[in-house]
Amino acid sequence: MNRCSFSVAMAAVCIALMGCSAAHRVDAPSIHLMEAAGYPVLTSTAGTSQQLTVRTMIALGAASGADCSVSGKVFSLQPPAVAGASQWTVTSPSVQGWQVADTASQLRVEWSAFVAQLAERRRAGCFHAGWSTTSLQQTIADAIPVPADEALVLRYGFSGEGIADLQPGMVLQVERSVLGERKGRRELQSLQADYEVVATDDGARLKQVRAETLHMKERPDEIFALDRLTQNATHLRLLLQNLTAGTSAQRPPILLMGREDATLQRVSVSMEAQGCDAAKSVAGVQCLTFHEAVSLLVAVKVNRKPMTFALGTTLGVALDTQSINPATAALHRSLTGGRMAAVIFPQTRDGVSRIVLQGGDEIVGNKLVK
């Protein structure tokens, strides 16, 4: 985690931000980029308590099991105290709590364990049928204080280490370079398809949103028919291209498909050494090895124009690519359940560099004056 220093001027928000937000639907509390001891945290929790933990009430529906609590060192979840009530209690570090080095260092391991327990409680019937593990994870991540530089870990489980569970808000891009002809000249071109990851009641699926066929007869299924190839799966785990252990060879990208996230996690441990062979004897798991370049993106809007950026791109980079002045920039974030929240941050180059884009983000701002 990067401990960064930047201005704490959170109370005074540029008039341009307020003007821009009027054009957007906002039906969730604003998310503030706050810091203590130079460490930025995204939070919608009001107040500046010095307590190291915060209890957040989240509507997850009535509990329907004997033991539906989740316990952990950093994150915990308690079902409603009253039968039939819908408000669950999540205990997590506060803005101040994330300044504790031991807590911050345990985030990835503890969040992974927390999500695994959520999946177990869901399979045990603690939540009604409309909840998938993904929707539970994202709903909780949207509500609690989150270290700004680890936001993708909590919302998507993405740690940048080459393995990602595909979740709503992501876009999967598959691309193969081919020699084509343009205006009588041969040149390197690309067959390409983009797939949006959309939510289902029990997980996620792929929806093709763009394809570039170059009018060629060749239509490889692993580029143009991924939505069909994955239609029987509810959980998709992508292993991005990586060096094969102990060699200089590149292991190609691999997509694991199944109906249980825990099973895919177990199988993926053996993928580096065995590739898709590791999945052959595992019931309910399918495996696809790509012969193309595969990228993970997020779909956002910039001044109402749909765009995609690589997963992990900061707001600052997005503004730079579109020549937008940070002093005029505003950001609205899409949360679970279709809600939208304004994100309040210092409108400086340092401030916008702390915000990592998520799927569904909407950016508005004025072009830099040349």
Rank of each mutant, 00 (worst) to 15 (best):
A341Q: 03
A278S: 15
V54N: 12
M10P: 07
A318Y: 05
E150D: 14
L311D: 04
V54A: 15
S7Q: 12
S177I: 01
P220T: 04
V282A: 14
L288P: 02
T230N: 00
L335V: 08
S112T: 13
S135P: 03
F158V: 07
N303V: 02
E272Y: 00
G61M: 01
D67S: 06
L240Y: 09
E181K: 10
A225C: 01
D165G: 10
H291E: 11
R304Q: 15
G47F: 08
A83K: 13
A143W: 00
L240A: 15
G47P: 08
S132D: 02
R123I: 12
H235E: 01
V95C: 05
C20A: 11
P252E: 04
L255R: 14
V197I: 14
A299P: 02
R251V: 00
P79K: 01
Q106F: 04
H291C: 04
R304E: 12
P145C: 05
E120A: 15
W88Y: 11
G338S: 02
S49G: 07
L152Q: 13
G203H: 08
M18A: 12
A342C: 08
A141T: 07
V343T: 04
V146E: 01
V41T: 08
P147W: 07
S353D: 11
R333S: 13
A11R: 07
G258L: 07
G203E: 02
G360P: 06
C4A: 12
K367C: 03
F6D: 06
G38M: 10
P252T: 03
D261R: 14
A63Q: 07
N242D: 14
P79V: 01
A101Y: 05
D320H: 10
Q208W: 00
T263E: 11
E161D: 15
H24C: 08
E260V: 11
V41Y: 03
G130L: 09
A46G: 08
L288N: 01
S5N: 13
G125F: 05
A85C: 05
V82S: 06
L33R: 04
L172D: 02
N2T: 05
G316E: 06
Q117R: 10
A85I: 05
P40E: 03
E187T: 13
V95Q: 09
K367Y: 09
A66C: 04
Q173F: 00
F309E: 08
S135K: 05
F309L: 05
E362F: 02
G316H: 06
L60T: 13
D67H: 13
A245L: 15
Q189I: 01
Q167D: 02
A148V: 03
V282F: 12
I254M: 11
G125R: 03
A37L: 13
P93D: 00
V115M: 11
V109N: 10
S105K: 11
L118V: 06
S94Y: 02
A283F: 00
